[in-house]
Design a protein around this nucleic acid. Structure first.
Lengths: 345, 345
DNA sequence: CTGTTAGCGCGTTCAC
DNA sequence: GTGAACGCGCTAACAG
């Protein structure tokens, strides 16, 4: 009994069909198939028809790895984030993907677990795929990573921060300034005995920056920044916030507001307060950072800083596209942040 | 003044250095460089040294797209999830990446926004990269997608569900059974007037399955499954839960437990109850699904079903590796689920 | 509008 | 241990 394959006498036997197979069936050259499938060349209507039906018949799918080798354009944009299961960075990745959708670029995504060594490895393994551009989180990279990036000769965009020595372009905001704005608002609400809850400052440079902004603001207001509880973990999770608020109140019982490095520990802290029978914000006020969905849904809703995670992604991708088209050169794009005062303070 | 480049007389001018450039500097053939960098061939010690220092000098990075063309192995595993900013699927993606790390495989990740049409597009654009295997979420695919998958001739693993007509291998659990187990436990706690909160059943097949399990369990217990509030959104978010619980209690004020399709709306519902002055679980009990971090941190902690999101990822990747090494063929691997009774019921 | 030639940068294969 | 020839599947460049 003849199988479907027997009806394709011209197809090479091993592996998936190639462009040459399509060409033979359509009675044209491979080049014409290439042009037809790309879509931006003039092809005779019936030639196109024959090609498309051959593609259909074979179930042919373009091979971009071969295409990129020849055209010297991989069609990849690499992006590296600290963690994929943090909704802020997931939003950024989503923004990048969405903005890339208009182009034929594909996202190559990796996460570092907040380790610069892991970032270095990732950069190398991504560069092996010859991405046309690379989007990083933050400005902290190993010397070797910097060297590889320089050598790659592709646009580099650092996000989520304003590094002092940017590699190339930047899309982000000053985490220190944003935290300073939050503290200012809290001082404006009448708080004066500030606690701070943070994870590993060595790994989480954005957290470190926020701590700097916290200190700066308090100093400016003549207040103490000594009530700090540091959980040596990156990323800091909700449960860490619960743990931290207990330590904070034990060591500094006079604290009237606990500022957390992100909404996740802030939420954990609020829930822990409820368990301890403390009213938020009456007994202790709590603020977060990042404006995760939980911040507005939680009761009490959490005072925080909205930072346009998704927009960082779309703007980084758009800047990347512009740079690839030589419509833009290395720039620093500042994204907005906005203090959201809610009922937890 | 001589630039660094002037000291590399043998390097081709345009683009990043190639293996041939390294070979010239090291005084060997490109083939030897290839072998040296791969690492599993015998190379004379000093040859290796010369090659490595040439690599260093040039900042050479292997070009895997060229390598894959030649070796006919892309080193890509494709994975498609409904949404990347849902921590359950993010955990699965993390599991896949982590398990792949032992190999030289790289993850190509995409998300569908719960649309099968988008999934079809994604499958095509990923197949263009010639992945060696593909991991999907669920068993709902367009006919064209199924055809492309069949044609690709690579292992396909469907996850997060037990499809009736699997394409190939499966790593997941029955969402219907898991929900049934949850309802059984709640009946055991004495609840009898069940409400159900769900998003778009057309897009979220796992949600649909959970609804089936809900109905099945209630029918078995002789209880009504009519108290349903459906929010036409996928994915269903925390805020939808807040909205839904109001509708539910308005239309079915006698409800004694509201079962939500996931922990996210369950949390939103609990917070909304607090706003409405209802005590959970005293006035109304609420259960979720998925055991997101929030379920255990929240106060009250949320009764839910733990479903090993991360393990689905690692097991899918391991099964994929086994299939690629011909150590395994299409199998159905059932992952565990476990009802977690907490204080919200 | 279509075809021919050449080559992208590697790894496979065979030879020594 | 190392090298030469060849080709992976496609597209750039040029020709017609």
């Amino acid at each position: 009994m003849p199988t479907e394959r027997d009806q394709r006498p011209l197809e090479a036997s091993g592996g998936p069909p190639t462009m040459a197979d399509v060409a033979r069936i359509a009675g044209v050259s491979a080049m014409t198939v290439s042009r037809a499938l790309k879509g931006n060349s003039y092809i005779a209507k019936d030639t196109l028809q024959r090609i498309l039906s051959a593609v259909d018949q074979l179930g042919y799918v373009l091979d971009r790895s071969a295409g990129s080798l020849s055209s010297r354009r991989s069609g990849f944009i690499a992006a590296i984030v600290p963690s994929i299961d943090n909704s802020n960075f997931a939003d950024t990745a989503r923004g990048i993907t969405d903005a890339l959708e208009q182009t034929s670029m594909q996202l190559l995504l990796g996460y570092t677990n907040y380790s610069v060594e892991r970032e270095e490895e990732l950069i190398e393994s991504m560069l092996r795929r010859r991405p046309e551009g690379i989007i990083l989180t933050g400005g902290q990279h190993t010397p070797k990573a910097r060297a590889m990036l320089a050598n790659a000769g592709i646009p580099v965009i650092e996000t989520w921060d304003i590094p002092e020595n940017p590699v190339d372009a930047v899309v982000g905001f000053s985490n220190a300034d944003a935290m300073e704005a939050l503290v200012d608002s809290l001082v404006g609400q009448g708080y004066s005995r500030f606690g701070f809850i943070i994870g590993s400052e060595a790994s989480d440079t954005r957290g470190y920056q926020r701590h700097l902004g916290f200190d700066r603001a308090l100093r400016r207001h003549g207040l103490s920044g000594d009530r700090v509880v540091s959980i040596e973990a990156a990323p800091i999770r909700m449960s860490h916030g619960a743990e931290a608020i207990r330590h904070l109140l034990q060591r500094f019982p006079d604290t009237d507001v606990a500022v957390c490095v992100s909404d996740l520990p802030a939420f954990g802290a609020i829930m822990e307060c409820r368990r301890m029978g403390l009213a938020v914000p009456h007994d202790i006020a709590i603020a977060g950072f990042g404006d995760y969905e939980i911040a507005s849904v939680s009761e009490p809703a959490i005072t925080t800083v909205n930072v346009d995670s998704y927009g960082i992604g779309t703007q980084a991708a758009e800047q990347m596209i512009a740079m690839l088209e030589n419509r833009a050169s290395a720039a620093t794009i500042k994204t907005f942040y906005r203090v959201e005062l809610r009922s937890s303070t």
